[in-house]
């Protein structure tokens, strides 16, 4: 990119009461992504511009916003791929705007928590006190791996037309995560979790517009997870399937964090390692 190139950045701003579009003209030196551009504007032109960021490599999920009409991660959107002389950025839809490009994420956090996103075992003690790992194949891992990529960026929620209409809808992120644990070969919370999503604002509100999967930056493909979960739920309702047995650990349980290990003295007759 040529150092003398300039671009116009238009930002949808909000200061608690007033909403307006603000334009900045700025050079592209040292800029690859939209996030670089925002940082440059903040450092050089306007210290009051508010947006979130952290990792700059698309894994922390901070920098979601609507860029030229589509919800995306600012750090993962290159200016060159936008192919436009003007970059328009707005805060994500479907979440309350707090300031400029920053939105409140309370419902993302709450809904995610509602679907019990953790390994549920019939015998809970196994989690902390089993002496070894569950043996799971790579194929077993692949059943849920894709859905575990979720960085909680909120983009799918911003894109989802059902969330627009029903703000209480569990939403693609949470439903995707419900399926992530449902599909985990170690999990035994199949029936419990399916009951949770089978609710007035739950899974049946999804009509498969697929916008979530379209904008997801990590190929979590929540739409796929949700449709596959509908199938599981139908199996449950039709009593074709009743539950799921997780991978097993047969060895006796034992305390994991023991005093001996904490205070173990090194043996005196060490051999040198190399």
């Amino acid at each position: 990119m040529n150092g003398s190139d300039e671009i116009i950045l238009r930002v949808r701003r909000f200061d608690g009461t007033r909403e307006w579009w603000q334009s900045y003209q700025i050079g592209l030196t040292g800029v690859t992504s939209v996030l670089d551009l925002l940082n440059k504007v903040r450092e050089e032109k306007d210290h009051t511009l508010a947006f979130r960021q952290s990792c700059h490599m698309g894994t922390c999920g901070s920098c979601g916003m609507v860029i030229n009409g589509k919800p995306r991660l600012a750090c993962q959107t290159n200016i060159s791929e936008l192919d436009a002389g003007v970059v328009n950025v707005e805060p994500m839809h479907n979440s309350p705007v707090i300031k400029d490009l920053v939105v409140g994420l309370d419902s993302l956090i709450e809904n995610h928590k509602k679907v019990k996103p953790y390994i549920i075992r019939g015998k809970k003690e196994e989690i902390f006190y089993a002496p070894r790992e569950f043996e799971v194949t790579q194929e077993g891992t692949t059943q849920f791996l894709q859905f575990d990529y979720c960085i909680m960026c909120n983009l799918c929620i911003s894109a989802c037309p059902t969330v627009t209409i029903d703000p209480l809808f569990l939403g693609p992120q949470a439903l995707g995560q419900a399926f992530r644990y449902l599909a985990d070969p170690r999990d035994e919370g199949w029936a419990e979790r399916l009951e949770l999503v089978d609710d007035d604002h739950g899974i049946w509100r999804c009509h498969f517009a697929g916008a979530c999967s379209y904008v997801c930056p990590k190929d979590v493909d929540p739409a796929k997870a949700i449709q596959l979960m509908k199938k599981e739920l139908l199996k449950k309702r039709l009593l074709i399937r009743r539950g799921k047995k997780g991978a097993e650990i047969t060895e006796p349980l034992q305390p994991h964090f023991t005093e001996e290990k904490l205070t173990a003295a090194p043996p005196l007759d060490f051999k040198r390692g190399d």
């Binding site: 894709q146 990529y149 697929g210 997801c216 190929d219 739409a223 796929k224 449709q227 199938k231 139908l234």
Partner: peptide, 26 residues
């Protein structure tokens, strides 16, 4: 939609994501 939502068809299988990401359900 019935094929998608009731029978889980046309969606692709869970898989290891490969960049550039193109979701199989779409």
């Amino acid at each position: 939609l019935l094929l998608n939502q009731v029978f889980g068809l046309l969606l692709g299988k869970p898989r290891m994501p490969v960049y550039p990401y193109t979701p199989t359900s779409l």
